Simulated assay, not measured.
Amino acid sequence: MTGLLQRRPKCTDQQPALSQLLLEWYDRHHRDLPWRISPSMAKAGHTPDPYHIWLSEVMLQQTTVQAVKPYFAKFLALWPRVTDLAAADSEDVMKAWAGLGYYARARNLKKCAEVVARDHGGHFPDTEEGLKALPGIGDYTAAAIAAIAFNRHAAVLDGNIERVVSRLYAVETPLPTAKPHLRSLTGLITPTDRPGDFAQAVMDLGSSICTPKRPVCSLCPLNAHCLAFRDHNPETFPRKAAKKAKPVRVGAAFVAVDATPAVYLQKRGETGLLGGMTEVPGTEWTSRIDGETSVSAQPFAADWQVQGVVTHVFTHFELRLTVYRADVSKRGMAGNGWWEPVETLKEQALPTVMKKVIAQAMPDAFKQSVNLRGTS
């Protein structure tokens, strides 16, 4: 191990070569993304819109670029400026977000827009510290916005960058423990000139060449500097701690359909998981495997029939919902719910787990008409 450590180059020695090589590669091979200012656009005098960068970065958390593109376009069409988003109805924002997942992001998006509009005159702070003071903006998002939108020297560290840097320096410490060290290394190799382009270059490298499996090392502009490539083991980085099995929660969901046809819906509370989203009635989600999943938890009296079990995996647990359906001639009511026509279901803020539940309970014709099969 001592010999290996002695052979490892210092970041400060590599920084100029690494940044120059990567920026030259980025100028030729960058991805064209709707929120990005390309190198040619930058040369023509275009500058990034902080609102676009912030919106895209929030949407991209735990979500793929391809999934985000249509949502980004939809939000800009509905709310072209951050002040427009701040003035929007919260329910409309949740509806526009439906299907993108991780719904706390949408709630924080609205809160952040309101703070920027109210306290900052519709302009985002241009420093990491100022950005981190806003709702829903953590270390990564603040660094990304500061670097990309405001050309600040900031260590941007997302999953792609973690992978590239951990391979570049053969970082043996497993994630997530290695994050502070990887952030420090990233800061050392980030140039003061074009730090935003550098961060996006590393992201593009991780997306296209330094991929989790079968990285195309022969095409990598940094392969002459990469310790994992030299030692023929890039796929073993980043090191990761053993994953623990996700706990299981259970519950029941009740899909009531009337003759019009319409489905009975209600709104979840504003706080907690899926807060503010639309759902069908159901039980609490409990970690007790013998938890309440029976028809006795029905929201109102009807001929409820079991339709099967839907499984949905959240970040921290796996949910198994027993799905019931009742075809009703007389509309029952529970709490402050409402009957939503089938043809407008797709306009409601239904999270993916609820789309799965309704799709499980409804005939194929209904599934196709409201496009409930999508999972995102």
Rank of each mutant, 00 (worst) to 15 (best):
G122E: 08
K179I: 08
G121Q: 12
D158I: 01
P195H: 07
G136R: 14
P174I: 10
V93P: 09
G196S: 10
P221Q: 07
C112Q: 13
K95Y: 05
V116A: 00
S166G: 03
A144I: 05
R163Y: 02
A146R: 06
M94R: 06
N108W: 05
K110V: 15
G159R: 00
E91Q: 15
S184Y: 12
P125D: 00
K111Y: 01
A88D: 13
A201T: 04
L222W: 12
D89Q: 13
D126A: 05
T192S: 11
L222T: 10
V202Q: 15
P221G: 11
A201H: 06
T177V: 05
N160P: 07
K110Y: 11
T186G: 03
D89L: 07
H153G: 02
D158F: 01
A104E: 14
A146P: 06
G130W: 08
P180C: 12
V202T: 10
P135D: 04
F150D: 02
A199I: 04
G136L: 09
H123K: 05
Y169T: 09
T186M: 12
S90C: 15
S166P: 05
A178D: 02
P176L: 07
G121E: 13
T186H: 00
A106H: 07
V171K: 00
D197H: 12
P191T: 07
T186E: 02
I209Y: 14
W97G: 06
A87W: 10
L205M: 09
S218M: 15
G130R: 03
K95P: 08
P176A: 08
K110C: 15
I209K: 04
I148T: 08
T211C: 10
Y102N: 13
C220G: 07
P212E: 09
R183W: 12
A146K: 01
D89S: 15
